[in-house]
Design a protein around this nucleic acid. Structure first.
Lengths: 226, 226
DNA sequence: CAAATAGTGTCTTTGAGACAATATATC
DNA sequence: GATATATTGTCTCAAAGACACTATTTG
């Protein structure tokens, strides 16, 4: 069954398209816990709840989906992000009262706890929230709890595989620091010997000779990612 | 900076939205090799090349992204699919000459080689193509070679973890058959003893007692997924 | 019994977990 | 030296790879 018009330039353009959004899952380790950046919702839907920072795809401004995620970060958090990873895309009818059909492409990034963000366009407040406490925090907007969970699973798998995104750790660090950091992300303790063995076997780090650090005890070797 | 209209029902709806497509990566094992289902393109763009079966999201028909993938399978292949898994979402400007900005949500599925498909709406021809030969087959439409590669990597990881999607294997099979099947997907041989050990340790299979099978040699135990 | 494939035994290697010992700072 | 943490040594265990052996069918 052919449409009556043979013009290839038409056809798809006829159909109404969904509202396409991009949402960000920024994760970091703060106070020894894995935390996610939440944005306070001043307007409906889900007014006065918290949700992921996000925005609508702007095809006149964004050259790609990842570029859209970067623009959203600039607008909402007044920051560029590194290591954006696509997590999942959700979409369906009746997902968002602002459109009959809405979808969101979710990007995740593990960032430094020192990352300086400030509420940008149409954002009244931002906060870090420990992901463990999300269940009791009350409701998150939309299906954002699920999206966060998926991003968390993904970063945990990366850390289990010793795939640390650059920029999330300080430039220099010690092995005990990296272990504590990893444990915070995984939410479970790691064996010290095993952790060190795996790290050195992976050849991921470069020792900075002479550089040390310490308190009232033996100082630790300082490393950087090579 | 607030927009001059406080109405929450407006705003996002103002922006032009991209063309949203859903593409399918059907994989199967045929003739001992991992193969992908390709559809012949009769119309521009990429006329007379081969590409993934896909279609435009129809927000009036599809309740969700996965439902859209199922509809595309019904329309293009005259089949329903099981085990659809979202692979990735690609999108950007100048991706598709039919729209200034286009994105595609890719779903993958490992299916039975006996799966009966037939060219459906606007599909002239379908064929299985070994993924190893894709490089020399000449060009695929769009970035479909990349999308196939991502889907292949994903199913390989699943098989390495012994996560076999249901419905891709026959109801009953022997361990040597499952091993050969897995090797075809991975593209590399597996150790027999190790494979058997891992399979039994995983408690994935249920032996069908008494049922055997064979040629001019010792018959193999028949199993099914439990 | 010869041939061919199914299934098992077992040795070795590798990597992870557990626990203990040693090293090096500050106070 | 006491204390605290960093780093290393090593024993054990679990899983994977390699290889040889046994088992069971057909012709």
């Amino acid at each position: 069954m052919k449409l009556h018009t043979p013009s290839p330039a038409r056809g798809p353009q006829h159909y109404p398209m969904p509202l396409v959004r991009v949402d960000l899952v920024l994760l970091t380790v703060k106070e020894g816990r894995l935390q996610v950046m939440l944005s306070h919702r001043e307007k409906a839907p889900f007014e006065s709840l918290w949700g992921l920072p996000g925005g609508v795809l702007r095809i006149d401004q964004d050259i790609s989906l990842e570029a859209a995620a970067q623009r959203v970060a600039r607008e909402r958090l007044v920051r560029e992000l590194s290591n954006l990873k696509q997590v999942v895309t959700m979409g369906g009818a009746n997902r968002d009262p602002r459109a009959p059909w809405a979808m969101t492409v979710v990007y995740g990034s593990l960032v430094s706890p020192d990352l300086e963000v400030m509420p940008g366009k149409r954002v009244q407040a931002l906060r870090w929230q420990a992901v463990d406490d999300l269940a009791m925090t009350g409701l998150l907007a939309f299906d954002h709890a699920t999206l966060i969970q998926m991003a968390v699973e993904r970063i945990r798998q990366d850390v289990r595989d010793l795939h640390y995104p650059r920029g999330a750790m300080p430039e220099q660090f010690t092995l005990p620091e990296l272990q504590t950091y990893s444990e915070a992300i995984l939410g479970s303790p790691l064996d010290k010997v095993t952790f060190r063995r795996r790290i050195v076997a992976a050849h991921l780090l470069e020792a900075l000779p002479g550089a040390l650090r310490g308190g009232a005890h033996r100082p630790a070797q300082v490393y950087k990612f090579s």
